[in-house]
């Protein structure tokens, strides 16, 4: 039974940090070996999970959702109304997207996602989060000086363009729908999806171009 005692957790942390080897790879190896020895998990199952997230679940999923929102106005409406339901049309529902909100950029509004308290992220449609998203720098600064942070990503905004920072403090996760670039008229979904960057769906990239990076 879990005791839910924060003081006890703090004591265990101090004990572990003092006694475990300092190399994180050895720390994780020690944990995996014990879990395997106890019959709690099979190494082959861990292999399959690693493969799922490194090869099959990633930002290409979100890009497909964005591309359809650009080409199908009825889908865009469904996506903006209830993104958790709309992504089921692709079979992309899953980890951390049971409550999902899509926020659309416009010429006058820019949206940007952060989780200041931990590192909440819509895994089933964007895959693993980039290191910067989980960094102290981004988490501390995105809410206070979003324009400076955006400059570091190469995004310069006019002062009259409003920046809306969504701090993922609860179960709700977010995806930004960037604006469709000019010069892509008549493109099909697959071609459009190829120019949607991961960062544009987090809001640290704004102006997509007709050529993929």
């Amino acid at each position: 039974m879990t005791r839910f005692d924060g003081e006890e957790a703090a004591q265990v942390h101090r004990h572990l940090h003092a006694h475990l080897p300092s190399d994180p790879a050895l720390r994780v190896k020690a944990l995996e070996s014990l879990l395997v020895e106890r019959g709690m998990v099979a190494p082959e199952t861990l292999d399959a999970w690693v493969e799922a997230y490194s090869e099959h679940i990633g930002p290409m999923r979100g890009a497909q959702v964005v591309a359809r929102a650009w080409t199908d106005p009825a889908f865009r409406e469904r996506l903006l109304a209830n993104a958790a339901e709309a992504i089921k049309e692709f079979g992309f529902e899953g980890h951390a997207t049971g409550n999902l909100k899509a926020v659309a950029n416009t010429p006058t509004d820019h949206n940007m996602i952060v989780c200041t308290l931990c590192s909440c992220y819509p895994f089933s449609i964007l895959g693993m989060s980039p290191a910067w998203y989980k960094s102290s720098e981004y988490r501390a600064r995105a809410v206070r000086e979003p324009r400076k942070v955006l400059e570091e990503f190469g995004v310069s905004l006019d002062p009259e363009v409003a920046v809306h920072v969504w701090d993922s403090t609860a179960e709700l996760r977010y995806i930004v729908i960037p604006e469709r670039p000019a010069g892509t008229e008549g493109w099909d979904e697959a071609r459009l999806a190829a120019i949607v960057t991961r960062n544009s769906m987090i809001g640290t990239h704004r102006t997509l171009t007709a050529e993929a990076e």
Binding site: E137, R141, E152, F153, T197
Partner: peptide, 12 residues
């Protein structure tokens, strides 16, 4: 905190 260590790639 200092600058964000930005990347522009799609694959983590």
């Amino acid at each position: 905190f200092g600058p964000v260590d930005v990347d522009h790639g799609g694959h983590v």
